[in-house]
């Protein structure tokens, strides 16, 4: 599969369902972790032109926190969480009693480490569900975190996926915690070379 534009509706539906299973598990993990009720948007499997990706989350200059991991194994890809820094502060408050955010947009080593761990837990739960579904073990790398403009965070993550296609396949969902309006966007980008194998396993090749 060298061009995601060739994906059929049936294939996209299968990918979205896979996203549904993965993010359902991740939402459960987050809910247990925070001891709160977490709702989830219906995931989408979108084929987006390179230009429009950062529009998904409020424009290329929107300040966000990005937590990025590589998916390793026979099915490889990239996994990225994007959340407003205000959401990160709320998550830290819920997890670290007595937490007071110092400078907005600046996080201490401890806070950074805590956010990376949240990324680790969500990605681990997501990929676990996918491993069970596909019977292919998937591991996530250690997460890396940065706070910057959304466009700048995303371009480094998607560039390799865009070598042959001008479009990127993204499986996207968001989590909502209604009480405090926490929003976390999750994106999964299968590597182009893994997409064929993934579709075969899902039975929609």
């Amino acid at each position: 599969m060298d061009d995601v534009l060739k994906l059929t509706k049936e294939q996209l539906d299968a990918l979205r369902e896979m996203g549904n299973i993965g993010s359902g598990n991740a939402a459960t993990a987050l809910a247990q972790f925070l001891n709160r009720k977490i709702d989830m948007d219906v995931p989408s499997a979108k084929i987006l032109p390179l230009n429009e990706i950062s529009r998904l989350i409020g424009g290329p200059e929107q300040q966000v926190m990005g937590i990025f991991l590589k998916v390793m194994g026979k099915l490889s890809g990239r996994f990225i969480l994007l959340l407003p820094t205000t959401t990160a502060v709320k998550l830290l408050k819920a997890l670290m009693p007595g937490f007071e955010s110092s400078t907005p947009g600046k996080f201490s080593e401890m806070e950074t480490s805590c956010m990376r761990e949240i990324g680790n837990i969500l990605a681990g739960a997501f990929l676990n569900a996918l491993s069970v579904l596909t019977r292919v073990p998937m591991l996530n790398s250690l997460p890396s975190m940065a706070i910057d403009m959304a466009g700048a965070l995303l371009d480094s993550v998607i560039s390799d996926n865009a070598a042959v296609s001008d479009y990127v396949l993204m499986i996207e969902t968001s989590f909502i915690e209604s009480q405090e309006n926490l929003r976390i966007h999750i994106f999964l980008l299968p590597d182009p070379k893994s997409l064929d194998r993934l579709l075969e396993i899902l039975g929609v090749k």
């Binding site: 250690l142 997460p143 890396s144 975190m145 700048a152 480094s156 993550v157």
Partner: peptide, 15 residues
């Protein structure tokens, strides 16, 4: 730029 600091597992280094 290198947006994401390298971890033990990877570095993007594309910038």
């Amino acid at each position: 730029a290198e947006m994401f600091p390298p971890t033990e597992d990877f570095s993007l280094n594309i910038g």
